[in-house]
């Protein structure tokens, strides 16, 4: 999908530039945009390494496992069809913890592992069930405790206090996640409503 989006953005820019007469600006923008990407990454390199270093300590000291245990009662409520102490539940909790701490590199493999375990435990073939959908929804919403990327960008642009958005981010992302989960419960209930189920058996 990114192939099309990227090509689309560039082609639209060029076509637009022809009509607005902004061709010189667009051609210099191509180079300056690429250049500023380098500046951003270099500018954030220190903060990025500092952050990853701290997180490595959290990982090695098994803080992540502790947090996973701490959040598991909540996750059990969200995914009631998983065994409370099964492999799937364990992988789910580890993935959610990695996401909370912003360990993007660790979260994806743990998440894939969780998906495989959910599939196995719930004997799914090619259709997702409620627990799996809720798990993916949790991964498509941001549950990161510290909004590092946004804060680093804010630092670059002279924010008085780059991390001051954190409480606001917490409230916003919790509400967003709650809305997503509620919608998944609602849609799941609609699909499995008695009327529908009866109609389906009639068809069969």
């Amino acid at each position: 999908m990114m192939n099309y989006i990227w090509a689309f953005i560039i082609i639209v820019s060029l076509i637009f530039a022809v009509f607005t007469g902004n061709i010189p600006a667009v051609s210099s923008a191509m180079i300056s945009g690429a250049q500023s990407a380098v500046e951003i990454v270099l500018g954030l390199l220190g903060a990025m390494c500092m952050w990853n270093g701290l997180m490595k300590i959290a990982e090695e000291s098994r803080l992540t496992g502790k947090i996973a245990k701490l959040i598991s009662p909540l996750i059990r409520r969200i995914m009631p069809d998983l065994k409370p102490h099964g492999e799937a539940m364990n992988a789910v909790c580890m993935n959610i913890t990695a996401n909370l701490l912003g360990l993007g590199n660790a979260a994806t493999p743990l998440g894939l592992c969780a998906m495989r375990e959910i599939k196995k435990e719930c004997r799914l073939t090619d259709r997702a069930n409620d627990s799996m959908i809720r798990f993916v929804v949790m991964n498509t919403s941001s549950i990161q405790l510290i909004p590092t990327t946004a804060a680093m960008l804010r630092m670059r642009h002279g924010a008085a206090s780059p991390f001051d958005i954190t409480p606001c981010v917490w409230v916003t992302s919790s509400a967003a996640l709650a809305a997503g989960l509620l919608m998944s419960i609602l849609l799941g209930a609609l699909k499995e409503s008695p009327g529908r189920a009866a109609r389906r058996t009639n068809h069969a």
């Binding site: 809305a179 997503g180 849609l187 799941g188």
Partner: peptide
Amino acid sequence: GVGIKNIAHTIPSALTADLTG
């Protein structure tokens, strides 16, 4: 990654979260 093709109501739920956010 796990070969699930029918993702049921995942997208509308996830986009509800994004929109709310």
